[in-house]
């Protein structure tokens, strides 16, 4: 079995990847928002996520102990070496698609970091406390917009429902526990993901109800992010994101 530092490294990397990939998507909204104010709101969320990615990459690099930097981890891995959940890499689509992704993800993160606060790893616990403050805001922002869109016009209602329905099959993997999770859970270091599922679903259901939307059902849940098996979307994102780092490997920016 992997030693404890390797497990924590993987864990920190996963958390960082989720934040990094999702922040990239949100940053794509810059200058494309439906209202100037909302443009700025989405950018604020993106900036929170970039900050989070940086801290968890730093911690991962420290745990790995090979002298890598957060940038090495963010920019110099191949597609199969990113461990974010598939939901994070889903394209922005229309505003309802983005809000649905934000809702599903931030409610999950809320319960995840609530639990990670109690980790016996002091760094994880401390970072979770800080992260939770941001997540609460992201969750409120997403929930409020879900209600406005769901209970807005006929068109917005349809778009909001469609968005939730489309993304639903990517929510299953959020609650999986693989060997890394299981080993860390056993030692009181990691979050018991499967146990968060019912809390998450109840929370989502309540928001959707207020938004006059229905909770979707899925025949099958997609999986693979934690193993580095992604959707086609990720490769394109990385191609763009890593362009300068790859084209000028010796350069400092």
């Amino acid at each position: 079995m992997a030693n404890i530092n390797e497990l924590k490294y993987t864990y920190s990397l996963r958390i960082a990847d989720n934040a990094w990939i999702l922040s990239h998507r949100l940053s794509e909204w810059c200058s494309n928002g439906p209202l100037l104010e909302e443009d700025l709101a989405l950018t604020n969320i993106a900036l929170d996520l970039i900050g989070r990615a940086q801290t968890f990459y730093n911690y991962a690099a420290q745990l790995e102990g090979k002298g890598k930097t957060a940038d090495d981890l963010a920019y110099r891995r191949n597609e199969r070496q990113y461990y974010n959940n598939l939901l994070a890499e889903m394209p922005n689509g229309n505003f309802a698609d983005t809000i649905a992704r934000q809702l599903l993800m931030s409610v999950y993160e809320y319960y995840f970091f609530m639990s990670l606060q109690n980790s016996k790893d002091e760094t994880f616990a401390a970072l979770a406390v800080k992260t939770l403050k941001e997540v609460k805001y992201h969750m409120a922002h997403a929930a409020d917009w879900t209600v406005r869109l769901g209970d807005g016009t006929e068109e917005s209602h349809e778009k909001a429902q469609q968005a939730i329905d489309n993304l639903w099959m990517y929510t299953g993997e959020l609650f999986e526990a693989d060997e890394t999770d299981t080993a860390l859970i056993a030692q009181g270091l990691g979050v018991d993901n499967p146990s968060l599922h019912s809390l998450w679903e109840t929370h989502i259901k309540n928001v959707l109800e207020e938004a006059t939307l229905r909770l979707p059902t899925a025949d099958y849940m997609q999986t693979g992010g934690r193993k580095g098996v992604h959707t086609e979307h990720l490769g394109h994102m990385l191609g763009e994101m890593q362009y300068l780092q790859r084209a000028y490997p010796d350069a400092k920016w």
């Binding site: 209202l35 100037l36 104010e37 700025l40 709101a41 604020n44 409120a140 409020d144 406005r148």
Partner: peptide, 20 residues
């Protein structure tokens, strides 16, 4: 000032714009 359609949005927009 900010633009918003309801109280919650006005408060959040004000937060995002004037307390960065």
């Amino acid at each position: 000032s900010v633009h918003a359609s309801d109280r919650k949005m006005a408060l959040q927009n004000a937060r995002d714009i004037y307390t960065r």
